[in-house]
Design a protein around this nucleic acid. Sequence first.
RNA 1: UCCUGCUUAGCUCAGUUGGUUAGAGCAUCUGACUGUUAAUCAGAGGGUCGCUGGUUCAAGUCCAGCAGCAGGAGCCA
Length: 498
Amino acid sequence: MRLRISCRIVPLRLFLRFNMFNKRVKIKELLTWEPGNQEVTIMGWVRTFRNNQFIAVNDGSTNTNLQVLLELGKYDDDFLKRITTSAALKITGTVIPSPGKGQKLELKATSVEILGDSDPEKYPLQPKKHSLEFLREIAHLRFRTNTFGSVFRVRHALAYAIHKFFNDKGFLYLHTPIISASDAEGAGELFRVTTLPFENFPKNEDGTVNFKEDFFGRSTNLTVSGQLEGELAATAFSDIYTFGPTFRAENSNTARHLAEFWMIEPEMAFYDLEDNMNLAEEFIRYIIQHAMDHNREDLEFLAQRLEDEEKQLPQDKRSGMNLMDKLEFILKNSFERISYSEAIEILKESNHNKKKKFQFPISGWGMDLQSEHERYLVEKHFKKPVILNNYPKEIKAFYMRQNDDGKTVAAMDILVPGIGEIVGGSQREERLDKLEQRMKDMHIPEKDLWWYLDIRRYGTVPHSGFGLGFERMVQFVTGMTNIRDVIAFPRTPGNAEF
RNA sequence: UCCUGCUUAGCUCAGUUGGUUAGAGCAUCUGACUGUUAAUCAGAGGGUCGCUGGUUCAAGUCCAGCAGCAGGAGCCA
């Protein structure tokens, strides 16, 4: 019975609603108009309702609310009581100049329709400051705050700029597999992908799991990198990039790690390390410029937010530079490029080291740099982004190209203030014999990567690439200090809500 | 995973050397006011003090274990 009724009613309602949605104007656009009694329809959610007369409406197109004016006495009290924080409204009215301060125009309502009520006794967001920790617990609603509105609009702008940058340079956007049988770095914890039953999984005679019985007939996991596959495509298309989700099952509980994050991995044939660094630097500058050009209002809001937050901090914990100034600085100044060897010298000779202020003292050439060392170089010594390059081969991955000195590889990491490593890349080893030797030394089974080695057999060329952690980039541009606040629904150890 | 810290109203927090009925601001509700800008003013309701156990005449306060969260470290992007 119910079904039959809705069958008759739904198509008509759908038709009406379709028209209704088409006619509405987004608030961001409306705010640019010259008020001249134009009749428009807007839709959005109530941010605040003042004086039984002024509704601040937001539709997510901008942080600036539209002020809607209700004529006093036109609506009964029961209706006005339903105009609560986050109620969804459809309002038709005329655009008039605003006599009040704070906005040049407002919408004088001729009709107000409540599309969705919001119970004020239960709705958790209030027109006041909330802690980011609290908002993380209500990630489904935090989009409705100014901070997260700005963060996610900037995130979108950066994602768009990334595609535009590479597209305009003739790069091919390659979709590499999410399910992978190889562990690209030869290290790192993996999320296993399987359809085998939890109990009584098939075993080999020696008691190990028989993955031949598994869905893919072998052990598989979620990808930790698309790089190796990217190299395959780069040796056909010359320049490719990937932009997709990446998974690490490490039990990392920090403000800069996620179990699921997005990574951009360009891979270029006929690029040496120098070309690679040039591209990475141009790339970072381009996407920041794009956000500055298209999301200035959001960035200025975030800059102000950061400034207010830093006022609460003790002097030594403040960044000392406004977010906008910091971004401008990146655009105008080239990154510092130094070799690992030079970095060790600088650190060794630093007063910081001589006064034994490093928790991990500089033991000498060959040691892996700790984050306190990287922070010293970036935040204290150079006070700008640093591209560290030519690391000792012992502390880097097998696929990195060996330099003629026999000690180092053509690797590069880009370190930025506040975040640390944002890019890791290298020129790849294109010489088959050198690569095979390195794989033997590092106990990486050749049989799993026969296809990777094939590329070195048939028309091998010098090539390079890098990986950029997207969320870390968003952190850097928005100034958000916790990576969980720049991804919609963060996945971290012990947390996969929403 | 390790170290440190935190957990009190819907939110943000105060709570003295352990002491009788646990407070504030905001939010919510009721009323007033009406060109407001997180409106304002008056009033009201709202608490298993994270959980479990212990010490004590007496525990929000001291001790232990557990959980959750945060910051730092490692791993990395």
